[in-house]
Nucleic acid binder design. Structure first.
Length: 233
DNA sequence: CGCCAGGGCCTCA
DNA sequence: TGAGGCCATGGC
């Protein structure tokens, strides 16, 4: 069986650079690898809001449409988010689903940022910041890690249903494994490199969508040779 | 029409 | 701590 880095290289060879996280500025999306600097506070805020919106929801078009709505109203802004009525916010993010919960969670998040501004949060150690984010309503491990990695540029590997599916099929672990155990495996198996974590997770999502679906489409899968699951076919 | 998507919270045992 | 119900949209 291949090791993690070999899997990464195979995926990268096949799908190319992904350039997550899309940060929309005036309706455009900017691949983060082109920025070559830390995100601005506004961009970090947008990534965090996107992380709330993305939970159990299709990024495209559900979340994208919501973020465009927010940008149109110049709502990626703490003061404006603080002022906007929760019901109004819910309407703007309706396309993301669970909009009442998400609007409430985002409002609480904005309130939280008023006490602990992004400029201070970004200076914290990864694990310390992770604990703080996890204490927020609506922020579970995946959402926290998405914010850490794609917003704050902290090396915290994002584990999602796709990661669990792909790597259990490859034979790295069985599908009952916990989030923290999977993450530990990635943290020990790879160098703690933000750009590597960023690309790897994005490649995992791409691969899951193209081939490693719930009902796997193994024809043309670049990991066919490495995969235990494929052998059943 | 049912299933799925870049989950997480709450409740109950 | 684990299972189950709930939140809700849009694409296929």
């Amino acid at each position: 069986m291949a090791n993690l880095f070999e899997v990464y290289n195979i995926l990268k060879e096949n799908y190319g650079q992904q350039g997550w996280w899309p940060v929309t500025e005036k309706g455009e999306t900017i691949p983060s690898y082109k920025l070559r600097r830390l995100l601005t506070e506004k961009q970090i805020l947008e990534v965090c809001i996107g992380a709330f919106l993305a939970s159990n929801t299709s990024w495209d078009p559900n979340v994208v449409s919501s973020i465009i709505n927010l940008n149109k109203e110049n709502l990626i802004n703490l003061e404006k988010l603080k002022k906007i009525d929760e019901k109004q916010l819910a309407k703007l993010i309706q396309s993301s689903g669970y909009y009442n919960q998400k609007a409430s969670n985002i409002k609480l998040f904005v309130k939280f940022l008023h006490e602990k501004p992004i400029s201070k949060l970004i200076k914290l150690e990864t694990l310390q910041l992770r604990e703080i984010l996890l204490a927020l309503k609506g922020v579970g491990p995946e959402t926290a890690d998405s914010m850490l990695l794609y917003g704050f540029y902290k090396p915290s590997f994002v584990i999602d249903a796709y990661t669990k599916r792909i790597f259990s099929r490859l034979g790295f672990f069985n599908s009952e494994i916990e989030y923290s155990d999977i993450q530990e495996m990635f943290h020990y198996g790879l160098s703690k490199d933000v750009q590597l974590f960023n690309e790897f997770h994005a490649l995992i999502v791409e691969h899951a969508k193209r081939h490693c679906k719930k009902e796997p489409d193994c024809l043309g899968c670049c990991l066919r040779e490495e995969c235990e699951y494929t052998k059943r076919f």
